[in-house]
Simulated scan of single mutants.
Amino acid sequence: MNIKILADSASDLSKDHYNEFDIEMVSLTVHLDEKDYEDGQTIYPKTVYDAMRNGKAPKTSQVSPQTFKSVFTSYAESNQPLIYLAFSSELSGTYQTAKMMEQEVKEEYPDAPIHVIDTKCASIGYGLVVLEAAKMAKAGKSVDEIIDDATRRAAHMEHIFTVDDLEYLYRGGRVSKTAAFVGTLLKIKPILHVESGKLIPLEKIRGSKKLFGRMLELMEERGGNWENQTIGISHGDDLDRAQQLADMIKERFGINQIEIEMVGSAIGAHSGPGTIALFFLNKSF
Rank of each mutant, 00 (worst) to 15 (best):
N54V: 05
H156W: 07
E220K: 09
D33V: 03
I3D: 05
Y37K: 08
G254R: 05
M25L: 09
K46C: 00
K189E: 02
M219N: 08
L202T: 08
I83R: 00
N256R: 12
D16L: 00
T184G: 00
D144P: 04
S74I: 01
T178M: 14
T230M: 10
P273D: 12
G125W: 15
I3S: 07
E77R: 04
S78R: 11
Q229P: 11
Y84P: 01
S14V: 07
Y126G: 04
E251A: 15
I249W: 07
Y126E: 13
R252D: 06
G224M: 03
L28A: 07
A266V: 14
N256Y: 11
T42S: 14
K187S: 13
Y170T: 05
L186E: 02
M25T: 03
H270P: 13
H17K: 12
S142L: 13
E227W: 07
L185N: 11
A57L: 15
I117D: 08
G254L: 12
L85S: 01
G272S: 13
P273Y: 13
V175M: 01
T47C: 04
I205E: 03
E217G: 11
V163Q: 08
T178Y: 07
K210A: 09
D247F: 05
D149Y: 14
K4T: 11
V182P: 08
E24G: 04
R214F: 05
D144C: 10
V116I: 15
R222H: 14
E104N: 10
Y75Q: 02
I117N: 10
V30Y: 06
S9V: 00
G140I: 15
K99W: 00
E77W: 08
S234M: 04
L82Q: 05
L216D: 11
V175A: 00
S64G: 06
G40Y: 12
P190C: 01
A76V: 01
I117G: 10
N2Q: 11
K46E: 10
W226R: 09
G254K: 08
G213N: 15
H193E: 13
V263I: 15
E259H: 11
G223P: 02
T178P: 01
K283D: 07
V163E: 00
F21V: 09
K283H: 01
K250M: 11
T97F: 05
T29C: 03
F279K: 03
P58C: 13
L186N: 04
K283E: 00
L6M: 09
D148P: 09
M25W: 02
K59L: 15
M262P: 02
Q66L: 11
I267K: 01
V263S: 07
F181W: 14
Q243S: 06
S92P: 12
E259L: 15
I276L: 12
M157P: 05
K187C: 08
V143Y: 07
A7D: 02
S234D: 15
K198C: 04
M100T: 08
I5N: 03
E217H: 15
I147K: 13
A122W: 15
N225I: 00
K204P: 01
E38P: 08
I147F: 09
E158V: 14
D33T: 06
L278V: 01
V26A: 03
L169T: 02
S89N: 07
D33E: 15
A179Y: 00
K35L: 15
I249D: 07
M100Y: 01
M215S: 09
S11D: 06
D247P: 02
L216R: 06
G55Y: 15
G213I: 13
P273L: 11
